[in-house]
Design a protein around this nucleic acid. Structure first.
Lengths: 114, 114
DNA sequence: TCTTATACTTCGAAGTCCAAAGTTATGGAG
DNA sequence: CTCCATAACTTTGGACTTCGAAGTATAAGA
């Protein structure tokens, strides 16, 4: 009984309320997504196999999918070197770094309280 | 080629690295989970139907599942009043508040950058 | 020719999320 | 006494996601 229009989100409360929040949060709301941003951010660049070592419980295909999604979302860059055997390096973009910075307090707490 | 044992996580890098992080992060890595913590935290208490208004794109069953998971994780409390029609109120616990505090910077940024 | 190395992709099964309909309980209208 | 209304879920069957394991592509070096 607060808003007058039908499709306005009901966010008229004390404090900030993140109602139908989409975008980056959807990308981060998937398995291993937050850990992955943090792991890449802890290094300058990382190769696929190194990421797998850091996230041993995640399947190859899931890591691959997360990386694609992050690239689409502009959170990471993918640099491919045309050598044999192939070499690919992943790194956070500026946006990705910003996300990682804001993710750290949460992950830190979660690490201490598991 | 850094660690000598087989099952030690590869976390010997500069800075903090959150390798096979489990627990609360898994609970938060599900659809609408982070938004839900934030929404409940923006109020003293919330009823089920109010939560649904704040998260119109989430299905009833998903909200119900998230609330169960949060209760199991100790992030929210569920208070049931034996009236007809029934009344149930949800609120963040102290742990939930801590999580919300650490979630805010991320959600704030995500709101500005969607 | 065969092996090696890296970075994936493909596969079928298992688990998660969806919208819509159903469940429980009882107070009040007719 | 029967029917409807209300709140908070639960159930259902189908679509989407994640899983581990196996397969693909490339070319240098034995």
């Amino acid at each position: 009984m607060a808003d007058t229009t039908a499709d306005t989100p009901v966010c008229d409360v004390e404090g900030t309320c993140y109602c139908p929040l989409t975008g980056v949060i959807d990308t981060l709301s998937r398995k291993y997504a937050m850990q992955l941003v943090s792991i890449i951010g802890a290094h300058d660049t990382l190769r696929f196999a190194e990421i797998e070592e850091h996230l041993p419980t995640a399947s190859t295909s899931t890591i691959s999918k997360r990386l694609d999604e992050f690239e689409d979302a502009g959170l990471i860059s993918r640099t491919q070197y045309n050598e044999i055997p192939p070499r690919v390096e992943y790194a956070l973009t500026e946006e990705g770094s910003e996300v990682r910075t804001r993710l750290e307090p949460l992950l830190e707490w979660a690490t201490e309280n598991r």
